[in-house]
Design a protein around this nucleic acid. Structure first.
Length: 670
DNA sequence: GGCAGAGTACTTTTT
DNA sequence: GTACTCTGCC
């Protein structure tokens, strides 16, 4: 038996051994799916069934793609691994469009805009329709309707909502607008290639011949377009292996269609189905609870997690507290107790449904000086300062209208609405950037002209210094942006110097990321271009968490997917929180969220709920989560008001408290 | 361009 | 009850 099968169970071996034809791998939580993906990739190459560049593995996150490449590299070497196409769906789409930008009718250095920019474009469009503007539509809903039209057309899911109606009119306008701006949004990154493959038989065949084997990770999270995209790419050979777990589908609200994985055997009738049910992560007590939770899910592929560790472990605990303050205090206390018992802080995760819960918890940990890391909140890319800096860099290297408009008057250089209108009004089909230059030269006496010309000069200098000079990119950005008084602008935007400083840090971080790329790939214009590309796909390259940091991990249930921790706290198991009050009828997805949280725990799971929680400024009684009522009560141990003190502990604690009080009193007296 | 007051949302956020 | 965004006015 070859090395690729070593240490694998029979089902994993089957999956790794699979050659031609469609394959569905139902990989339960902690069942070693990445190992299977890596080994199958390695085996196909090592056995000479294909060459590395003819294998394509699609993932959802940049991190997952990196991890996969890293593990393939360990087995086959860096050189071979680098040739495998492992990347995100969007990364694939971007590369496709770059290669075919002429056929795609896009400018050579077209940009990719994120959700925020896309929404701004839409909002701008809305201004031309005063009747729509008045209707006070929800932009998220409107954008979702537009996506729906772009991907599936107008179907019976359309109702009488103002958003539905408006989207019919706005969808074509929105797409035309993006074309005019010389950018694509994330959706278009996949839609346009799909359209192109469908319209050109030549292109389709070319793409279908490009790979011998395709694999898709986290298949339960694919959306409609991604399914069609994969269909199209693997249409020639049908060597398509998808890996996923329908029980961990938690992104339905973002367009993920669980039907893609549920219906895969129907879509690919001859597909081979392999279930990876052996769990290598958790104790059997935790798995029993997990199985009991998910068994209540309506639509799913039947499977159970079977324990492999010969360890029953302790029964998961459920603490019931009076209110959220008690919850915070007691969880902090538990964390410290477990730390004393030998858990490191980084072995402990605190999970919750919504970010606000994390904020609450954060206060408690800080008061007790427990080191922690809070993930989530606003990403670097969504910070205004980060977007500004990226707009400066893009405008210096290959400007598009969105990036240039963002900075044309930043910081203020006298370019107001009037000037912008004048620039727009210039005849011809030149880009906005070119027109701005034209206008500035034609109106030398205007104050705005001076501003625009100095901006051009700044951008030219920035381009030269970033792609060539010797000072680090961090130093160049810092210095140059101070020179044009962007630093002053940031200072003025915030009340205190401290928050301005922390915002300025975004500027420096971006510089550091660029320097990191220079170190790896050499300093050149091409590297700067690649840097922009990566940043636009939100690949910061710096999300590899510091493995040495000994900090309690705090994150939402969505963010914890794919991770594991010896000790997990799962907070707020209450109606209206989990399941969340604002869920539609999709209880199943909320239940899966609960399931995802539970299956993160390796050794010990502690759940909490409270009887009163503050909502909208009022203390309100809250009911236990319906999911707690569904499960067999014998699977958990319920404790009211926190863990009872062990003998002797109470005395020790009281003594400590008195000591502290005495000390404080003493200080006051002096 | 900057400020103040009104209005509104208080779920999650792989790209 | 609060924090953030938008609008309108100076």
């Amino acid at each position: 038996m070859s090395t690729w099968f070593q240490g694998l169970n029979p089902e994993q071996q089957q999956a790794v051994a699979h050659n031609e034809g469609p394959l569905l791998i139902l990989a339960g939580a902690g069942s070693g799916k990445t190992t299977v993906l890596v080994s199958r990739t390695g085996r196909l190459i090592a056995e000479g069934r294909t060459t590395p560049e003819r294998v394509c593995v699609l993932t959802f996150t940049n991190k997952a793609a990196r991890e996969l490449k890293h593990r393939v590299a360990k087995k086959l070497g860096e050189k071979v691994a680098a040739k495998v196409w492992a990347g995100t769906f969007h990364g694939f789409g971007l590369r496709f469009l770059k290669e075919h930008h002429v056929a795609a009718d896009l400018p050579k250095g077209f940009g990719v805009i994120d959700q925020g920019d896309a929404q701004a474009v839409l909002k701008d469009l809305l201004r031309d329709h005063s009747d729509y503007e008045k209707a006070r539509m929800n932009l998220d809903v409107l954008m979702a309707c537009i996506h729906h039209i772009r991907t599936k057309g107008r179907d019976d899911s359309f109702d009488n909502s103002p958003e539905s109606a408006a989207s019919v009119v706005l969808a074509p306008k929105y797409m035309r607008k993006l074309r005019g701006l010389g950018v694509v949004d994330f959706e278009e990154l996949l839609l346009r290639p799909l359209q192109m493959m469908r319209e050109s038989e030549e292109l389709r065949q070319k793409m279908q011949r490009r790979f011998d084997f395709m694999m898709v990770d986290e298949f339960q999270d694919t959306n409609h377009t991604q399914m069609l995209f994969v269909d199209e790419l693997s249409g020639g050979h049908r060597n398509l292996a998808v890996v996923g777990d329908d029980d961990q589908s938690i992104y339905g609200w973002r367009g993920a269609e669980i039907q893609n994985i549920l219906g895969f055997p129907k879509r690919y009738k001859d597909c081979h189905v392999i279930r990876l049910e052996r769990n290598y992560r958790s104790t059997s007590s935790i798995l029993n609870l997990a199985n009991s939770i998910i068994a209540n899910s309506e639509t799913r592929h039947d499977k159970v997690l079977k324990p492999s560790l010969n360890n029953k472990g302790e029964l998961p605990e459920l603490f019931v507290y009076e209110n959220e303050e008690a919850e915070v205090d007691q969880v902090v206390r538990e964390v410290m107790e477990f730390q004393k018992k030998g858990y490191r802080y980084k072995d402990i995760a605190i999970l919750y449904r919504s970010n606000s819960q994390g904020g609450l918890m954060e206060g408690g940990l800080r008061r007790s000086q427990v080191p922690y890391k809070l993930s989530g909140g606003t990403a670097l890319f969504d910070r205004k300062e980060a977007k500004d800096v990226m707009a400066f860099i893009r405008s210096a290297i290959s400007p598009n209208e969105i990036s240039f408009r963002r900075i044309i008057n930043l910081p203020a250089r006298g370019v107001g609405d009037k000037t912008l209108e004048a620039i727009e009004g210039l005849p011809g089909s030149a880009s906005f950037f070119a027109k701005a230059s034209e206008w500035a030269k034609a109106n030398p006496n205007e104050k705005a002209s001076e501003g625009i010309l100095s901006l051009f000069e700044f951008l030219r200098g920035l381009k030269a210094q970033l792609s060539g000079g010797s000072p680090s990119a961090e130093a160049v950005l810092d210095h140059e942006l101070r020179r044009i008084k962007y630093r002053e602008y940031v200072n003025q935007s915030y009340r205190d110097a401290k928050s301005a400083d922390s915002r300025w840090l975004c500027v420096n971080i971006i510089g550091r990321i660029m320097d990191g790329m220079f170190a790896k790939e050499g300093r050149s214009l091409a590297t700067v271009e690649k840097f922009i590309e990566r940043m636009e796909l939100r690949d910061s390259l710096e999300d590899q968490d510091d493995p040495d940091a000994n900090e309690v991990q705090m994150m939402t249930l969505h963010a914890c997917k794919g991770l594991e921790f010896p000790l997990v706290f799962l907070l707020g198991l209450e109606e209206d929180l989990l399941p969340h009050a604002r869920l539609g009828q999709n209880t199943d997805e909320e239940r899966r969220l609960f399931y995802v949280g539970v299956t993160r725990a390796q050794k010990h799971l502690i759940m909490t709920r409270v009887e009163q929680r503050k909502r909208y400024g009022q203390m309100r009684p809250v009911a236990p989560s319906r999911f707690l009522l569904e499960i067999d009560t014998a699977l958990i141990k319920e404790l009211r008001g926190g863990r009872p003190f062990a003998p002797g502990d109470r005395e020790a604690m009281l003594a400590g408290l008195y000591q502290k009080l005495n000390k404080q009193m003493g200080q006051k007296d002096i």
